[in-house]
Design a binder for these strands. Structure first.
Lengths: 237, 237
DNA sequence: CAGTGGTCTAGACCACAAT
DNA sequence: TTGTGGTCTAGACCACTGT
């Protein structure tokens, strides 16, 4: 059983993204939505505020709530913020992985710090090359705490680690801190991603947290610059 | 008069960032905070949820709310999400601008679309080179709707457009949609930012919205790759 | 003026964790 | 069992917009 506000959020989100509600169209007011969903105004507000955070709605006191231009920009792969479960989920299609390296190492100070571990604690180190539509697209270097995420093997790595965490380990991923930068490509990048000397990398450094705030993954994803861009929607609450 | 939840948010945020509250330390529970700030639990929850969104807090049902590792990483310029007012505010120091070009043009279809204008409506086009600590750091190309943001002149451009919008025009900036990508540098980038052939650009394309949902700015900021990285904190609500 | 969203309250019941 | 945060209610008052 999901929460009521999340159900309402999903229903209205669908009405917007499927085009039932047009751009700049005024949606029903809060009072009417309360009646429609048999709930209090605070619950409606919570659902609508989530849609504002997604950039799908804007609201004007004294006037109403309106749909925001929700162009389907699908030339490139866009990642939206409420789905933070890595490549596999956000692109739905045609992901394959080569495992370049998969070993147990010992945490250095930086990693231990980010993952709330001690220096020299054992640590998974995973390097994968990921393909989208048969073309090499990302090199991922992932560190995971084996005490939190046990039982990783090649089968899992060939599919989705996140799927394993949520469905087999029954843990829930809650948040991620991502730092994005542009880098000059290295020899390794050129080799695996088939880049020329002057072609850059879009690198994302990430710490991912479980639902309860515990960090479980520290990773670097080096993306081909011509296959990825990232969109975020920032609000000043 | 600010809202109560924003005041509480600011006070607790300061206690975390100034180091009064240490990493992973449990903060006071909601009931006690209600008493301390003389307010209801919902108001406390709203303030604390904002801190969770900022990545400064994590919360565990049955246990409490805890401070998240808030290392001061100040080697590079980091932009956090709740401050979306451009370079000048987010770096506090030592910004200068050269105006490369400032003219009135006519909106093409793409721009008109993003800014809710009509094709061929008049439009400010502003190209600036921005220096940080006397070194060239960003080339900004900005389009603005003169009907919304009138009276822009060189003095304003030499300082902060955002300051002018909020303090002189008394408008409030509410949200921004940002798309980040890595690019091969152009001849112009090399010339102004003093880059070598193989050094990339970190480009941010942005649509900025007023408080009431109206888009007023469409811009491209081309950052030196070695002076900028962007951090975002994503939540799965 | 009426209609809208923004804030805030004082409580209720629930799910979860530690003891 | 106790203490914690998560959800939800039914209302209140306010600020802003348009007529």
């Amino acid at each position: 059983m999901d929460t009521k506000y999340r159900e309402i959020y999903n229903i209205i989100k669908e009405e917007i993204t499927l085009g039932k509600l047009k751009n700049n169209e005024k949606i029903d007011n809060e009072i009417n939505l309360c009646k429609r969903f048999s709930c209090s105004r605070m619950t409606i507000k919570k659902a609508l505020d989530m849609l504002v955070q997604d950039g799908l709605l804007y609201r004007r006191r004294g006037q109403g709530s309106f749909v925001r231009n929700s162009k389907n920009e699908q030339n490139l792969i866009l990642l939206s913020e409420r789905e933070l479960t890595g490549l596999t989920k956000s692109t739905n299609s045609n992901i394959k992985s080569d495992i370049i390296e998969f070993k147990l190492v010992f945490a250095n100070e930086v990693i231990a710090n980010h993952l709330n571990m001690r220096v020299n604690d054992p640590l998974y180190s995973i390097r994968r090359l990921r393909y989208i539509k048969e073309e090499p697209a990302v090199i991922e270097l992932t560190y995971m705490n084996p005490a939190l995420i046990p039982g990783i093997n090649e089968t899992i790595l060939n599919n989705s680690i996140y799927h394993y965490i949520e469905n087999d380990l029954n843990l829930r991923i809650g948040a991620a801190k991502k730092t994005t930068r542009a880098c000059i490509c290295t020899k390794e990048d050129k080799q695996y991603l088939l880049l020329d000397d002057n072609e850059p990398i879009l690198e994302v450094e990430q710490i991912a947290y479980l639902d309860n705030g515990t960090p479980f993954e520290y990773s670097f994803s080096r993306h081909r610059y011509d296959k990825f861009e990232f969109t975020t929607y920032s609000l000043r609450i």
